[in-house]
Amino acid sequence: MQNVEDMGYVALPSGTHFLNENQMGPILKSLATLHASSIAYEKQNGKTIGVEFRKWLKEVSVDPGVEWYTTGLRAVLAVAATHPDVLDNPEAQEFIAHELPKCLDKVYWMVNPSPVHRNVFVHRDAWNANVFYHKEKPYEERSVLVDFQLCRYSPPAMDFHLVSYLNLEPSSRKKMIGSLIETYYDALAVECREMGIDPNQEQLSKQEFEQSLKDFSLFGVTYNCIAATVLRLPENYLKNLKDKLPEDFHRFCNVDRNADVLRLMKDYPEFADYMYECVGDLLALTYHKLN
């Protein structure tokens, strides 16, 4: 991290929870550079990143064997059952109990290389704790991204969804999503063309990119809901749990957090509002869309 700071970049202030549109621009442009560069690498070397680096690009986050993910998923289902829009709806409760888990199983294959859309090297964890901004020109210069632990070979939509869901409040995301798409895609197109690549010939026309966003929307919404059960908890809750009750901390992270999340929602209305807003997006893509 010191090297990054020596280059003239700084982290966001401690306690930053959500970003604004100006702060999103440099991250989206950095991702566009990363994605375009991976295409250029493949064309120049005649190799496929997903094949050449397969053993290093394994899924370590979204997998039925990852306890952090499955524990979070169960908590999201528990929250969904208490959502005010469906609380007194027997049909919806039946769907959440029996059909919603099956719907969310689709996310497991979404994280793998797509057989339909253009795959690129994706960061997959560009939330605000992994971003550094230029000290003198924070909004003009591209951000520096760190922590590539979750990187994969998949469509650019995966990065776009994560960066927009994890860094923005749901209501803000809905308002600026069109502008964010323009910012990302314009930067991608410019980067590609400067490298002698026509995005339209790489299954990355504007229309194809927007279609990929629709095809992978369930991934973005689901991951955001799960992340919220950890990243959006009341201030210092998880830290205090880790320091004072390490066994409970392990249980919360890797075994069962349902009761804790529901209790915290009852005790902290702001946390409840946020969780219901996130889960409301999930229900809109699943129950409400199918009914």
Rank of each mutant, 00 (worst) to 15 (best):
H83K: 07
P170F: 13
A228F: 09
E67K: 14
Y287D: 01
E210L: 07
V122P: 01
L104K: 03
L150F: 15
W56V: 06
V144H: 04
A284Y: 12
E208C: 03
R54F: 10
Q149K: 09
G178S: 13
M24W: 13
R257P: 09
A11F: 11
L150M: 13
Q203C: 07
W127M: 04
V120T: 12
V66Q: 13
G8E: 07
T229C: 13
Y274H: 15
L188Q: 04
N240A: 02
E52H: 13
L238G: 08
N112Y: 13
F160N: 01
L245Q: 15
P199F: 04
V76T: 09
L233H: 06
L245G: 00
Q211K: 12
R263D: 08
M1C: 05
L290I: 11
Q207E: 15
A32R: 01
D85N: 10
D63C: 12
D243H: 09
Y185L: 02
I96H: 01
S114H: 04
S164H: 10
G178V: 06
P155H: 03
S14T: 11
Y69T: 01
K137Q: 14
I226F: 05
A189E: 15
L188T: 02
I181Q: 14
E277L: 14
V146G: 04
Y274N: 07
N3C: 08
Q207N: 06
A81V: 02
C225V: 11
E182G: 02
M176S: 10
T16D: 03
N119P: 03
D198Y: 12
L204G: 00
D215G: 00
N240W: 03
T71S: 10
A228T: 15
L241Q: 05
Y108I: 03
Q201G: 13
E91M: 04
L283C: 05
L188I: 05
P13Q: 06
Q2M: 10
